[in-house]
């Protein structure tokens, strides 16, 4: 059973719908025991970083501990941004610190809108398990104004082009994160979620 963390942010339902659609057993919960018993954790989120980390509260410690013990974790959008050390969105906020890096504003470019919203191509490295079977490049749906500047040497990173090479996904051991919304990225996104579910099953 995959647990989707229920912490009072937007879009958790879409993530559950998508996981159910691919035949995955999924529970939306913030109960300690349920999270401990799960085969993998999905941390979704549409919200400002500070709000999200506050809503996560005490669960942050639990998720961090379970992840460091080897449970697969997938962060999506703000859930992905929270994997990093800190964010500067509306003040400075600490993240989970699972991957080194900072969440900072997308640089201003007169040609390009912020938020970065819409479908953009992501170059898919061969060695990132979330992208197994998806080829060299695919298009995913993004909606965000901040991005994670990944500095972790142990993390594999996939990039999209938005006037510069912007990190779009990371993988470090059993920790996975995507800036885009797989639950809103059509069949390609569902395949990413399927790959995560398979990673969890292999880990059992």
């Amino acid at each position: 059973m995959i647990v989707v963390i229920d912490y009072n942010v937007g879009n958790v339902k879409s993530v559950c719908n998508a996981l159910r659609h691919i035949g995955c057993q999924v529970t939306l919960s913030r109960k300690r025991e349920t999270i401990e018993d799960s085969t993998g954790i999905v941390l979704p989120g549409v919200a400002a970083f500070g709000y999200a980390i506050n809503q996560l509260g005490e669960l942050a410690k639990l998720i961090k501990k379970l992840t460091l013990d080897g449970k697969p974790l997938l962060g999506i959008c703000v859930g992905y941004q929270m994997l990093f050390d800190q964010s500067s969105e509306y003040g400075r906020h600490d993240g989970l610190g699972l991957i080194s890096g900072s969440v900072i504003p997308i640089p201003i470019n007169p040609q390009l809108c912020v938020p970065h919203m819409g479908w953009n191509q992501v170059k898919l490295p061969d060695d990132m398990d979330l992208f197994t079977g998806l080829g060299k490049e695919k298009t995913f749906y993004f909606a965000h104004s901040f991005y994670a500047d990944v500095t972790d040497l142990q993390a594999k990173t996939a990039f999209t082009d938005y006037g510069f090479a912007m990190p779009a996904a990371v993988q470090k051991a059993n920790i996975y994160g995507v800036q885009f919304h797989p639950e809103k990225s059509s069949i390609t996104g569902l395949k990413v979620l399927k790959n995560f579910v398979e990673i969890c099953l292999r880990n059992e």
Partner: peptide, 29 residues
């Protein structure tokens, strides 16, 4: 929304932020 895995916009007669919140919580983006 249960079967739509692409961004989903909903409109029609929405007048307050509370109604918007309800729409977003029911699965709209």
């Amino acid at each position: 929304a249960e079967n739509v895995f692409i961004p989903f916009t909903v409109g029609g007669g929405i007048q307050t932020v509370e109604q918007m919140d309800e729409i977003l919580r029911s699965g709209a983006d």
